Structure formats: structure tokens, C-alpha cells
Amino acid sequence: MPKVAILIYSADDTIANLAENEKKGIEIAGGEAEIFQVPDVTFTSETEQQEEEGGKVGKTNADYPYKILTRDTLVEHDYYLFGIPAKFGNFPVEWKAFWDSNTGGLWAKGSLHGKIAGLFVSGGISGKGDTEMCIMNAMSTLVHHGIIYVPLGYKNAYKELTDTDDINGSCAWGAGCVSGANDDRAPSVSELKVHQLQGKAFYDRIKDL
């Protein structure tokens, strides 16, 4: 039975919540998954300083029960779902620092070549440009490592992706969530459903490989 590593960075509960629903979808399909959290970066950003002064403090790895993502995690697993909170249409610094600081040797050896991944995201606003661009930019890293990308597509979530009466941050590139400009919007029932659908579809795709 293939085991999926769900690899996330979550500064609040949004991506962690989405990851739990991706995991639930995998389990519905009869699979198994474990969630890992990207290591914290030790500096405090200007935004985080402002949030602390206003009484809102960003979460750290210590606030979550997940194991910390390492190079060994990537090597030991063949299937990944990456959870990324979009920052200006790209990785947040924690994700970028992990790739740059930990995977150069893996790239040189081709250690991740042929492994399979999907992506899910959150973004601050309801337009999909930010989250779609985040996935596209993340794919550059996957391509350099030779990781095969599996998109969500429309087949398994057509109703949710085409519903104009409900905000849904998901797109054909991957499941998503609109978190609000202040990261204070909880994922909707529709968004959580799409993440479960993505987890299930991803596992259905890999279970016979």
C-alpha cells in the first residue's frame, strides 16, 4: 500500500485544516497518509511583529502535532501532497528555505526523480490568480527534481469548481482556500469537500502503481 506524505507549512490553522481533509480523502479511498510540517524560519518578519503587537501571534511547529519535514522524509516516500500558503503568488519563505537549504544534494543525485506529487494552496483573496500562480511557481521546483505533477482537474470536483454562488479557492491546478486578507476566514464546507476529493483522486491515481 503506497503511503502519502502530506507536506505543509501552516502559520495558522488554515493549511493544517486543509491537510487533514486531504488525508481524510486518502483514507476514504483506502489509503494511508502522514502530515509533516516544514521547519520554522527563525527570524520574525515585519508583519509578524505587527501581529504580535496587535495581539495576534503566528503559530510555530510547536503548536502542531506533526513531525518536522526533513530530507529523509522526501527520500523515504514516493508520493507527496504539498500544502502551501501563497505569498505574492509564490512559496512563503519557510518553504523556499527548506528547498534551498536541504535538497541541493538530492537534486544532484536525482534522488526525487520519478516521485509523484499534487499541490493544494490557500490565498488571501477570492481571485484565483494568486493561488494558481503559486502552484505554477511551485511546479518549477518539482520539475527541477523530476517530480511528476498530478493536477486536480475538473472531473472529480466539477460542481464545486464551477459553482458561482459560493466562494471556492480551488482550481484545476489543485484544491485551494480563500483565507481572507487577515487569514481570518475559515475554509468553507465546499472548499473542505474539494480537498477531500483531491486526496481521494490522488490516491486512486497512485494506488495501483
Score class of each variant (00 low, 15 high):
15 I>W: 02
71 R>K: 12
20 E>H: 06
161 L>V: 03
8 I>P: 03
78 D>Q: 14
20 E>D: 08
156 N>L: 06
145 H>I: 03
91 F>E: 00
209 L>C: 03
164 T>M: 15
72 D>A: 14
31 G>F: 09
4 V>N: 05
192 L>T: 02
132 E>V: 14
154 Y>R: 01
62 A>D: 15
171 C>A: 12
111 S>V: 07
136 M>A: 05
94 E>Y: 06
47 T>G: 13
60 T>W: 05
168 N>I: 03
156 N>P: 00
137 N>M: 05
124 G>W: 04
137 N>P: 01
111 S>D: 15
111 S>T: 12
98 F>P: 00
13 D>G: 05
9 Y>G: 11
1 M>E: 11
203 Y>W: 09
51 E>W: 06
126 S>P: 13
209 L>P: 00
94 E>S: 13
161 L>G: 02
158 Y>F: 13
4 V>D: 08
32 E>S: 14
27 E>K: 14
159 K>D: 12
154 Y>K: 03
134 C>A: 13
138 A>W: 02
157 A>W: 01
12 D>S: 11
198 Q>D: 02
62 A>H: 04
6 I>F: 07
98 F>Y: 13
200 K>P: 02
156 N>W: 14
18 L>A: 14
105 G>C: 02
97 A>D: 14
125 I>V: 13
124 G>C: 07
26 I>H: 08
54 G>N: 14
71 R>W: 00
178 V>P: 04
52 E>P: 01
41 V>C: 07
96 K>N: 09
38 V>Y: 03
28 I>P: 00
208 D>P: 07
192 L>M: 11
208 D>Y: 14
7 L>F: 05
201 A>Y: 12
12 D>I: 10
45 S>K: 08
130 D>A: 04
102 N>C: 10
26 I>N: 04
76 E>K: 14
97 A>Q: 13
19 A>W: 10
196 Q>C: 05
27 E>Y: 07
52 E>Y: 04
193 K>Q: 12
103 T>W: 07
